[in-house]
Computed example of a mutant assay.
Amino acid sequence: MRPSSGTVDQALSQWLDEVRSVGRVKHANIVPAYEVDIQDVQPYLVFEYIAGQTLEQLLKKRGAMGPHEAVALMMDVLDAVAVAQAAGVVHRDLKPSNVLVDPVAPNGCNVGYLSPKAANGATPVPSMDIFSAGVALAEMLMGKPLIEERDP
């Protein structure tokens, strides 16, 4: 994570708390976060290493998925999102580049497109993740980005 010149201590503290709360959510399709902290004004995250590729990489490599495969994968993503939301965690950054596809378990993934509410700075709510999941599912079925933008 790159520090921003306008980082406000309160916002950074809130982000650290949110990421730490994710670390307490246990689910087979959520990659464990081992540590989150700041070193020399540089915020960082340490996650378990997962071999494989992102959904974005997979779609670029092989194109559209069949409906059964896409829905099965999205059901795994949504199952993890539901567990996280039940623990009070709204992902807010669910998109193909934030979904890891494990080569050993093709439907194993880590949950992460911004809903209009999130883009306008609204308080996180579960519907933000559902919106993002719908956009990701459309991309899985189309085999290409639904929204052309550069991923930061």
Rank of each mutant, 00 (worst) to 15 (best):
A84I: 04
F47L: 13
A86V: 09
K61I: 03
S97T: 09
P32G: 11
Q57W: 01
N98E: 05
N98F: 01
L58M: 13
N98G: 14
K26I: 12
I30M: 07
Q57R: 06
G66W: 12
L73C: 03
R24S: 06
H68C: 00
V89A: 01
P96W: 02
Y34V: 07
L16K: 03
D40K: 11
L78E: 09
L58V: 10
S13W: 11
P43K: 10
I38L: 09
R24N: 05
A28F: 08
L78F: 09
L12V: 11
R24T: 10
E35M: 06
R24M: 04
Y34W: 10
V25T: 04
Q39E: 12
Q42H: 12
Q39K: 10
L94Y: 05
V83S: 12
G23T: 03
Q39N: 11
F47C: 07
D102A: 08
L73A: 05
L16W: 02
A72I: 00
M65L: 15
Y34F: 13
V104N: 10
L73K: 01
V36G: 02
D76L: 01
D17G: 08
V89N: 00
V41Y: 14
A28G: 06
E69A: 10
D93V: 03
G88S: 05
L55C: 12
V46H: 04
D17S: 14
N98T: 03
Q42C: 12
L55P: 03
I50E: 08
E48A: 14
Q10R: 15
A72H: 10
Q39C: 11
D102Y: 03
D93L: 00
E35P: 02
L78H: 09
A82R: 15
S97Y: 02
P103D: 06
R92D: 02
A28Q: 13
G88F: 05
V36E: 02
V46D: 02
E35R: 12
Q42Y: 12
P67N: 04
V101I: 14
M74T: 13
Q10S: 14
L94I: 15
Q10G: 08
A87T: 06
A28I: 11
H27R: 11
Q85P: 08
V36P: 00
N29G: 07
Q53H: 11
A80S: 09
T54G: 05
A72M: 06
V46Y: 04
S13F: 11
L100A: 07
I30C: 06
G52P: 05
A51F: 04
G52F: 06
I50C: 08
T54C: 00
S97H: 10
L55F: 11
Q14D: 14
Y44A: 06
V41P: 08
K95P: 01
K26E: 14
H91T: 05
Q57D: 05
A87Y: 07
V104R: 13
P67Q: 06
G52H: 07
V41N: 14
Y49K: 01
A84N: 00
P103F: 04
R20D: 06
